[in-house]
Nucleic acid binder design. Structure first.
Length: 577
RNA sequence: CGGGAAGUGGCCUAGUUCGGCUAAGGCGCCUGCUUUGGGAGCAGGAGAUCGGGAGUUCGAAUCUCCCCUUCCCGACCA
């Protein structure tokens, strides 16, 4: 490719509405342009990177036996109704009608479609299978953000494994786990797996792959000493034991004006937060429910969703709260409440002599024994872990890290195969549902994650594995015949060696060409100009370090070819190169 | 959906408080000359329904109302 013909509209300044580093740089570098919120045009450079990321993913999934499909993106409502997700997916799914009035949806994922295809499997002899596709998914995200990190239309590789039994699924799952780690290595993304909430699908094992970034949207609790890491929606910690203390009589006492945990701590006759019960009134699928955590703890909503299976979940509004308990927030409690379900966090097991609202404005109870005084319907882990709490495995203080979720693998089980009749005859002659696994990785998001973790003050620093070009030949003086001839020869040599190279033959000043090559982030640069050629040299610059050395013209192409091959060969596909 | 901010040539901004001549500057783009190893200099030029609509006014980028869009925080998000 000749840069003079390349459509790469670089900008000196990022658009004012870009915030995340990857967003700014991908726009400035001429990789992407926004059409509207959550929808981006991939310009030639962006599409090249995107395709290279997809190819790395494709390679690794092929390597574990994956077979690639192309599936419809527009789905009939009926298939989503069959799985029950037409209703449970809510507003995330784009829905439309065709000319005949048939309800239709744009695919947000493809479990239903693959399960339908899988209904043609009929014998254990055909298994295992790993099927995947890399296609556009549509999600009507309430809030698209941060450039390519969260969009409404994006390419995703999702694969599905089909096995006879749970042991087979374990193998497919582990294969994907390893494939994903290789993918992130090749992309140069520092990634680690975390325990995750399996969400509405209710799978068993669920691992999210994360990379630390301030532009991320997930918080991860991670142990600096051992390998414990979990999404905050799933994370637990070891709390210091609390001495049981003396059981006391339940006693209502006046607390005029006290409406908060903090105020009750200060109040004469109150109690420290650790000895208080925090009662939250939530509406779970229409059922008003009391959720109780320790006074100094935060409720994690996802944990409540996972524990209850609720689909729609929200805090009760003030009117509902008063109607349910007869008091306003600030004086609420679950003592002796029997007409609403009560869900209590595990950290409150065995606690006595606690203080909580009395469901009467300006009154609290003290001397509360949780088991004695609350009608606990469900004990479960509900509280959100905080930084500094002890690792549940080794006791080291946990850190909370902001991360981008770059992949998710989990065990689906037999739900979909039962629904869609994907059953097989087992070796024993029984008809059994196929055991499925589901494995997703967003292509554009991973592209953004690479950008997010590979840039400096000059611009992007792509790993060779996904760089828009592997090398650039920067011509200092296009009207100098010797210079242009030397550059053309290098260009030919590199192309013939299979290097993805761009010849910067633009009639532009040196500074412009240097700045563009650095902004775009091309890993290797050969600078050809009269100054070096006078001594038979060209300059060789490595983008990641910006180290520049003179190399003889005759060996310049070889230098680049070796560098490209070396970067692609090692598993750490170009990190630091 | 709740809270906040913002829409002015392709990009970044000024002007809006307190209405007033032809909407200003930088980058980019085009032409010419000069320059030529780190985003050049000089001269000239093109390019704007000031997000849209309605209203107030002699007069609206500026004031009022309605709407649209975008960004940020939260909610939400296999």
């Amino acid at each position: 490719m000749r840069w003079s013909q390349l459509f790469a509209p670089t900008l000196r300044e990022a658009p004012g509405d870009a915030e995340a580093a990857s967003h700014k740089l991908l726009v400035r570098g001429g990789f992407i342009r926004q059409l509207h919120a959550g929808h981006y045009s991939m310009l030639p450079l962006g599409w090249k990177v995107h395709q290279k990321v997809a190819q790395v993913v494709r390679d690794e999934i092929n390597a574990i036996g994956g077979q690639e499909f192309l599936l419809p993106t527009m789905h009939p409502a009926s298939i989503w109704q069959a799985s029950g997700r037409w209703d449970t997916m809510g507003e995330i799914m784009f829905r439309l009608e065709d000319r005949r009035g048939n309800a239709t949806a744009l695919g947000i994922t493809h479990e239903e479609i693959f399960a339908t295809v899988a209904s043609e499997l009929n014998s254990y002899k055909q298994l295992p299978q790993v099927w995947y596709h890399i296609q556009t998914k549509f999600r009507d995200e309430a809030r698209a953000k941060a450039g390519l990190l969260r969009v409404r239309e994006f390419h995703m590789k999702d694969s599905y494994s089909f096995d006879v039994d749970a042991a087979g699924l374990d193998v497919a799952f582990d294969n994907h786990d390893r494939a994903y780690r290789r993918i992130f290595e090749r992309l140069g993304i520092p990634a680690f797996g975390v325990e995750a909430s399996s969400g509405a699908m209710g799978g068993t094992d669920s691992v999210e792959f994360m990379t630390p970034s301030p532009a991320g949207e997930d918080d991860v609790a991670r142990c600096p000493s051992c390998d414990y890491a979990a999404n905050i929606e799933k994370a637990t910690s070891a709390l210091p034991p609390i001495e049981a203390g003396e059981t006391a009589e339940l006693e209502k006492f006046p607390t005029p004006g006290v409406r908060t945990i903090a105020a009750l701590e200060e109040f004469d006759g109150g109690a420290p937060a650790i000895d208080q019960l925090k009662t939250l009134v939530m509406v779970l699928d229409g059922t008003t429910t009391l959720v109780v955590v320790r006074g100094d703890h935060q409720l994690n909503l996802q944990k409540l969703i996972d524990a209850t299976g609720a689909i729609e979940i929200r805090p009760a509004n003030p009117e509902e709260t008063v109607a349910a308990l007869g008091a306003n927030p600030g004086s609420l409690g679950a003592v002796a409440v029997t007409d609403h379900p009560v869900i209590v966090d595990l950290s409150l097991e065995g606690r006595v002599n606690m203080t909580t609202g009395a469901n009467e404005d300006d009154f609290h109870y003290r001397g509360v024994s949780v088991e004695r005084d609350l009608q606990v319907g469900q004990w479960t882990d509900l509280r959100e872990v905080s930084a500094g709490e002890a690792c549940p495995r080794c006791g080291t203080p946990l850190e909370i890290v902001r991360c981008i979720e770059i992949g998710h693998i989990f065990k689906l089980g037999t739900g979909f195969s039962e629904t869609f009749g994907a059953t097989i005859s087992s070796q024993e002659g029984d008809i059994v549902p196929i055991v499925m696994g589901s494995y997703g990785i967003g292509i554009g998001r991973n592209m953004a994650a690479v950008a997010e973790t590979h840039h400096d003050d000059k611009g992007l620093v792509w790993p060779v594995s996904v760089a828009p070009f592997e090398a650039v030949i920067t011509v200092m003086k296009i009207d100098d015949e010797a210079t242009m001839n030397a550059a053309e020869l290098l260009y030919d040599d590199l192309r013939h060696a299979g290097v993805d190279v761009v010849l910067d033959d633009r009639d532009a000043r040196a500074g412009v060409k240097f700045a563009d090559s650095e902004l775009v982030g091309i890993p290797f640069r050969l600078t050809v100009g009269p100054r070096g050629l006078k001594d038979g040299n060209v300059e060789y610059t490595v983008r990641s370090t910006m180290e520049t050395v003179d190399v003889p013209l005759e060996s310049a192409a070889t230098t680049v070819i070796h560098a490209v091959h070396a970067a692609k060969a090692v598993p750490h596909g170009g990190i630091g190169v």
